[in-house]
Design a protein around this nucleic acid. Sequence first.
DNA 1: TATCTGAAGTGGTATAGACATCTATATATA
DNA 2: TATATATAGATGTCTATACCACTTCAGATA
Lengths: 240, 240
Amino acid sequence: MINKNSPLPIYAQLEEQIREQIESGILGPGDTLPSEREFCERHGISRMTVRQAINNLAKAGYLRREKGRGTFVSERKMEQQLQGLTSFTEDMKARGRKPSSKLLHFEIVPAVESIAQTLSIPKHDPVYHIKRIRMADGEPMALETTHIPANLVPGLTPEIATGSIYNYLEEHLSIAIDYSNQVIESVTASETESHYLDIPSGSPILLMQRDTFLKDGTPVETVKSAYRADRYKFVTVIRR
Amino acid sequence: MINKNSPLPIYAQLEEQIREQIESGILGPGDTLPSEREFCERHGISRMTVRQAINNLAKAGYLRREKGRGTFVSERKMEQQLQGLTSFTEDMKARGRKPSSKLLHFEIVPAVESIAQTLSIPKHDPVYHIKRIRMADGEPMALETTHIPANLVPGLTPEIATGSIYNYLEEHLSIAIDYSNQVIESVTASETESHYLDIPSGSPILLMQRDTFLKDGTPVETVKSAYRADRYKFVTVIRR
DNA sequence: TATCTGAAGTGGTATAGACATCTATATATA
DNA sequence: TATATATAGATGTCTATACCACTTCAGATA
């Protein structure tokens, strides 16, 4: 139900409610949503408020609106899931695989020029330098090198780095990721990469550099990932 | 100015007006926009209408809103441009390069099983089969194979296929692209690819399959592009 | 039977006003 | 001088209402 005294806005509550119904399967792909006016009556709220909730979900790809007909649950589940995924952990879960990590390296070091520039911090400022093998169902999938400003993210430990760092940021430090820039290229595996990923040297590799930012534009991390090309394809949805 | 009798909604007119001011440089990164209430008075329209225009631009990445302070032009121009680009022509222009094409093949053929499935049409239905070398500043950049349902897009000619097919769809047929699914992988160049792209066989290639859809989910085209890895990197922005 | 017509229901656009919450600045107070 | 405090102005949320354009479908009409 809707709580008008909650600090969470009404439209956000309704949004969450509908999203939960979709994700739990109560509303399936193609199903018709109750009409806007029905939501109004049912919850005793105004139509503009209902529209704000529904429009947000439509823009996020959960719903599809049709003038004169109604609002429907979007057919393409995969796209919804793949929209806005940035972490390896989330990505693998969405693909139905079990993510894990093997920590190769964990250290606080002074930032070199290039890292400092990418993270918008002074040269020699302390940064975490983390190197992990990322695995799916126990198989090596990618070799990942992460740099995070130590002043921005206190208390990071090797134990946390073995799991999802994103999760730690959002749940324990309440640091909300806003967006990431990704650059993807195709290269051949170096000696190091082929060794850790257990593939022949010279095999194709999908190389991904991801820089992640907060709402105000502050960089939180820069990650370089080398994915095994025989195991991993990168999937995106582009909306016009 | 705003025309209240235009078939184009007021919020869309205002949206376009502001976008033009940003793209023409009248409003630069970091600049403060007039307040919502000022827009209301200036154009004699209501605040909700102004908000619809501004919110759309904020979601598209043009503007950044700050409660209690104001609305500002977003700092990161590149991202705006790279958001929502799907065509090679647009992509190259955004990178400041001159796109061109060399037509290798143009034919209407009956759809084979896999193509028919991707395009959601009956097997053996006619489809355009187009093969092009895509060039930037005259240099070969990618080898591209396109399939388009012939019944959906009448009147496609080799001449048009030498330029931007997207442009033809949108401007001449008023077919509005809604979104694309992209799958990107890293492979090594086949004989054909290395020949046309003028690179050694076995070189790394960025392989991209892009399926494009209309608002109602109808597939318009499926494209397989093989990019030279030494010349091309794929850039995306992911918003949470 | 086949076709037109109109009503009901849907989402799309727009108005005018209200109160809440946050930010920055100016002013009064210790 | 330094610290509270008030206030003006910004965006955020929400209401109640109105009319429009489009879709669907039942019922009237030819």
